[in-house]
Amino acid sequence: MEMFSALRPQDLWFLAEAAGKTLWISTLAISSGTLLGILFGWVLSVSGRLGSMTLGAVLDVFRSIPLIIQLVLFYNLFPIIGIPLDPFTAGTIVLSIYTLSLVSNVVRSGIESVSQDLRRASRSLGMSYWQDMRHIVWPVGLRAVFPAWVGVALSVLKDSALVSVLGYVELLRASQILITRTQEPLIIMAIVGLFYFFLSYPIARAASMVEKRWQQ
């Protein structure tokens, strides 16, 4: 293996592939975390004080401990109980739970933002509980908390960089490998920064366009 060689065109491919991995692990975490987060958020919204003292308190732990500590703990726990996990699996699980803890909070406040009067009105029109949920609470609540959800998704996309600590070669880890080989930190960081920017910025713009359309 050669050391200290200049940046080559195929290195861009290496980075692009790693960006694909960043996108993949984030997509997995955001989609599973969101699905479970909707379920847990609903449970929190109907279970009242008991729910927030049990489930809510547990979910809150994942928001009150640095993600990097969660990753290290989780990754080191599984060999102890006899099931060694690879960095990708451990990273995906931790990121998903982290997303779930954030999304459940967003969903709960979304459901609670829909006024009781509106819901009573829909029930008195003969809608069932689930019809009320599907046709009233979902669309109204979604508009209220959509920006918050996009914020969660974008922060998970960027926080996925922390999985590099476990040794998974996503975008940030790839950049470090290239920096070690080429000794060109500035240009590589600029390129990687652009990669992240072009993953994150379009989503942020698209989301704010959707919001504007809803406001009309």
Binding site: K158, L186, M189, S200
Partner: peptide
Amino acid sequence: RNTPVLLQLFFFGFG
């Protein structure tokens, strides 16, 4: 807002 904190940290370090 659109790049990871970790990248920003490495920028102020190695960069």
